[in-house]
Design a protein around this nucleic acid. Structure first.
Lengths: 220, 220, 220, 220
DNA sequence: GTTTAATCGAGACGGTACGTCTTGTCTTGCC
DNA sequence: GGCAAGACAAGACGTACCGTCTCGATTAAAC
């Protein structure tokens, strides 16, 4: 139906799409989020402002699309161990966040999204989900290696596995994000190692058996 | 009070400060970062725009100050165990991030700070350090309880302790931030429990990852 | 040459021509000159914008053609005397200028024509000449009746007669135009009578200025 | 009350007013009505667009004010006879209409005014009334000279005199306007003489139509 | 009955102006 | 001399039109 609706009239230029997103990224890198203007992007892309507004309703939506492709380069090669895989993903996510167009844009669109459900959805599908599969993949690989216990069978086990992946994802991505943008400090290989160690073994030296779980719910 | 203040020669100054910051917070809550304008804040505060610019150079700097006081309410009462303390701080930070004026402002000023060193410094002193001392306190308390090993003596030990606190801080704050703003999902008590468990015991099978999670909320 | 060039291909739709000019007039009447847009005319006519631009280069040129047909309805039936003929033409021209599509368009295209020679020519042939023949006819008729002296013989006489017709035309059309559009007052039968009296007898006391104006509306 | 309402805040710049109206006239002369843009006027005046919109709601209203001052230079020196006075006013009005800023603007604002009562009022007070007093003055002067009969006494006489002045004004101004803008021909001294002759004596053979026109330009 | 070429509708395109909004600065006059 | 009120220059916003340009789909005349 979208097909039949679009059969008529001059088709949209795919070249314009590409030029706009490229221009958006370079403008972001040069000027930052608050210095980015639709008119400037249009000029850089050799395109009329109208052409931008015909495709996106917002500066934010456009920027999400422009930045989303950066996240496609995140990969998870098998580095042989869970520890190496975690360190690898931490460092490559940190490298991504060091690109000025990524760091200035990501927080800004997230800020904007706090008041815009549509934008929130777009961020989720264009960015968040693209990263999350890295965690899922890494976790499955570690299970295959015997480094992590397998999922419990049945639908409850699957749901628990999903929750686990979500949690690990928030912890890793959140730690890197907070370190490099909020604390405003470099993510070094040493830091990545320390984070990985914490993640694998936790804070407690002796493991959880020593602790009581008085309310009976915290046995996770 | 206005009378006595007037006698000292700066009658409205302190009142104006308060009125402006209150107005900023309420405008943020209603309109979000991008809807916030200096003119509107001045009007809400019953103050001229000039008075704003006499005190802050920027919208961002003003907002940092307006939001900073929200972080003063974060406290760490001794809940008796490391586990309880961590869960407590996670939930209270999450509660703070649920206030619209905090969530919309925090990410926006961080985004702005990616290109503004002065703003970065202001965020660090006004916001980040205020949270970090919670980690330091909790860690020290856990060491006193014997839940964590004591710092090694000497300057290297102190440096290592600082690094540990920084890391834990980035992990906790980052996880909560990412969960509630980027992943855009609620921080529930169950999630806080799961995060705490992961933090204390890690992913590895020696830890609790192998254990079933009876309430279905934990397990990594 | 235009013939041979046009021998092939699909011929232009005469129905489209009509629909466009009708749509132009109704849009003018509703929206006025400045509210008239090519896109709107195309939509009203059920036609693509391309079809408009294939026929006219300009909004102005199109409007001239759309309005020109209104001037075709101006006629000069023989009312038996010069006085009656003048009054008749004054009233019928005034009636034309009361139609909103005529009044809003005429002045606008004249304004536009001050900087556009091609448009000036189009106005002259499509509109001005159509009115001027009324004066020529009326003058000739009055000469036949003996109300006006005959033209002098020879080419000079013809030229003088042309000049006289031009002058009378500018005076009559100009007076009506100024009264109804610039002074923005109705052209009433009484005003038409007064104008006619002035035109026939002039201001000077030797003429009819000394005469009483029985209805109180005339007499200069 | 406007006084008390405007007592506070920075007062509007009179220099800006002047600069804007000057810029409007020069832009009109160079670009014509349809080429005139608010942004361009602001730039020429060294002023922000906001400053224009703070003073006028419309391009049209601004142009009326800008052009109105041109009509102040119209004067009616006593040339000794009614005939000379009429010829003088015809020629000076024609000279005014030859200035490109006047000719392009006058018709355009009149066209716009056909759909805008406020603009119509502004034109009336700023332009039309300024010209009309020339007719009133010339008429009174001719009555003093005995070239025209005096007004009848009483209120009816005054009303009749007003109507007469209105009519003469529409005829003279309309004829000049139509000649130079609609017919698009120059107003020459010979044409002015011919118009004056027609106005004074009318078309009828009792009048000057019977007279010789030595330069061949007059007589109807 | 094909070919051929100009037409048609639809609508995207590069431009440009619109009128509004916000920013941060600068007068004013009151107090 | 601080303050409210508000004018100011600058410039981005998102919308609207302009006149041009693809598109695919009709037409009709020419072959």
């Amino acid at each position: 139906m979208a097909d039949s609706a679009r059969r008529t009239g001059r088709p949209r230029s795919a070249a314009a799409d590409r030029a706009i997103l490229d221009a958006t990224r370079s403008a972001l890198a040069e000027l930052g989020w608050s210095g980015l203007t639709m008119g400037d992007v249009a000029m850089r892309a050799g395109v009329a402002k109208t052409t931008l507004y015909r495709r996106w309703t917002n500066k934010s939506e456009m920027v999400v699309d422009a930045v989303a492709v950066l996240f496609d380069e995140l990969e998870l090669p098998d580095r042989g161990s869970l520890r190496a895989d975690v360190e690898g993903v931490v460092l490559s996510f940190a490298a991504l966040l060091e690109r000025p167009e990524a760091k200035t844009a990501l927080m800004a669109v997230v800020a904007e999204a706090t008041r815009d459900e549509a934008l929130r959805a777009r961020i989720r599908t264009a960015i968040v989900e693209r990263q999350k599969h890295l965690v899922v993949t890494g976790r499955r690989r570690a299970q295959a290696r015997g480094e992590l216990p397998p999922d419990a069978p049945g639908p409850e086990g699957t749901a628990a596995a999903d929750r686990a992946a979500d949690l690990i994802f928030d912890v890793i991505a959140g730690a890197v994000l907070h370190r490099s943008l909020v604390s405003a400090q470099r993510v070094t290989p040493a830091w990545a190692r320390a984070l990985t160690a914490l993640l694998l073994h936790g804070l407690s030296p002796a493991g959880p058996a020593a602790e009581p779980a008085p309310d009976g719910s915290g046995g996770a």
